[in-house]
């Protein structure tokens, strides 16, 4: 059984991660630990009791984000689903995390190397499920002969372009506004 002190420690760690998620989603990853501490109503030093460096905080946050988002992809993805259903499930998960995800893809190049690997592993779960759907459709010869990584990177490139340039396409959630159009036309590009 956990002691009261352990429970308190875990709650504070969770509060820091929850707050860092919100602050990074609205301010970007250049937000300071001071901003996070203020938003969480904690002393600045408390952050470093739980996370020795900013890099460590970002990596722990991304790992938690990865586990959460990947669990949702796995739950939504079914082996026998259609390409349309899979792409819609992917976008619907991203919509839940849109502000944070947008910051992540816009700033990934300046994040620590380990954070980049966590990001790749988040994408691996998506590519795993998309690969299952595409392989099945390729057997049925309903998809053009395109290498799997181009199929995947084209989809990711499309939605990432809309996300990172959302000001061009929507006042609010760009994925909500353009979901149907993106899915429909992406499928037209790769289907025979």
């Amino acid at each position: 059984m956990k002691t009261k002190r352990q429970i308190q420690k875990e709650a504070t760690r969770k509060l820091i991660l929850d707050t860092a998620y919100q602050v990074y989603a609205s301010e970007g990853f250049s937000a300071t630990t001071n901003q996070i501490a203020r938003a969480a109503n904690l002393s600045h030093g408390t952050i470093f009791v739980h996370f020795p460096t900013v890099e460590n905080l970002i990596i722990c946050l991304l790992e938690r984000f990865g586990l959460e988002i990947n669990a949702q992809f796995h739950l939504l993805a079914e082996k026998d689903e259609s390409l349309e259903t899979f792409l819609a499930a992917h976008i619907s998960v991203l919509i839940r995390y849109e502000d944070f995800y947008k910051r992540l893809i816009s700033e990934i190049n300046v994040l620590p190397q380990e954070a980049k690997y966590v990001f790749i592993n988040i994408q691996s779960v998506v590519s795993f499920h998309l690969n299952q759907v595409i392989e099945r459709d390729q057997e049925k010869e309903t998809i053009k002969e395109i290498p799997m990584h181009i199929v995947f990177n084209s989809w990711l490139g499309l939605i990432h372009y809309y996300l990172t340039n959302s000001y061009l396409f929507a006042a609010g959630s760009v994925l909500t506004d353009h979901k149907d159009e993106l899915i429909l036309n992406y499928i037209k590009l790769i289907r025979k």
Partner: peptide, 17 residues
């Protein structure tokens, strides 16, 4: 191999990830 096939990553990057 799967990461390279599905995401087109450089081998060294795929190994690290």
């Amino acid at each position: 191999n799967f990461t390279i096939k599905t995401q087109g990553l450089d081998k060294a990057v795929a190994e690290k990830a």
